[in-house]
């Protein structure tokens, strides 16, 4: 089994918009969804369509994985990379990447995105958070007031 796995040289990932990414096996290790698929094959090359992930997002995820899989990079360099990585993203990007991380079953990247999103909604108003997640409230104003009253111990 180990020999079969190591025979795979290049993995081709095909994003939802058809864009193609060729990566080495160690890059996709964290993508459990992809990995479980590779594990069942014994071919030299594999191509895997990812219909739920757009090319731009996949490019970013691969960039992140490459940086973190590298043994040459120091911990500090990785931390600085993470900092810059989040800084250049808009809220929409973060949510889309979180979704992709969930779909690809990438545990540490999912944590990383969840943390970045949490930092944005921390100490924000209910309206801001609704807007951020595009949530339509299905409460009437009376119901909402009632809920706040019920949980007033959290709204003090």
């Amino acid at each position: 089994m180990a020999a079969e796995k190591s025979s795979i040289k290049i993995i081709t990932l095909i994003a939802a918009d058809g864009s193609v990414f060729e990566v080495e096996p160690n890059i996709v290790k964290e993508m459990k969804t992809v990995q479980s698929y590779i594990d069942e094959l014994d071919q030299n090359t594999v191509s895997i369509p990812l219909p739920n992930v757009f090319g731009n997002d996949l490019a970013m995820i691969i960039e992140y994985c490459k940086k973190h899989a590298s043994e040459e990079e120091t911990k500090e360099a990785k931390e600085e990379f993470d900092f810059e990585f989040v800084k250049r993203m808009k809220s929409d990007d973060k949510l889309r990447l979180l979704q992709a991380a969930s779909y690809l079953n990438m545990e540490s990247f999912l944590q990383f995105m969840a943390k970045a999103i949490a930092a944005e909604i921390e100490n924000q108003s209910v309206e801001f958070v609704r807007d951020y997640f595009q949530i339509e409230s299905d409460f009437t104003p009376e119901e909402e007031a009632e809920l706040r009253k019920e949980n007033e111990w959290a709204f003090k």
């Binding site: 979180l98 979704q99 949490a118 930092a119 100490n123 949530i135």
Partner: peptide, 27 residues
């Protein structure tokens, strides 16, 4: 499309007060 467990991941990074306050967002 985000499963509850993913939303809970986000909430886990918030302090508990903020996390509890999300109860008024929607049902």
């Amino acid at each position: 499309d985000l499963p509850d467990c993913v939303i809970l991941h986000i909430l886990s990074f918030l302090n508990a007060k903020e996390a509890v306050r999300t109860c008024v967002l929607s049902s």
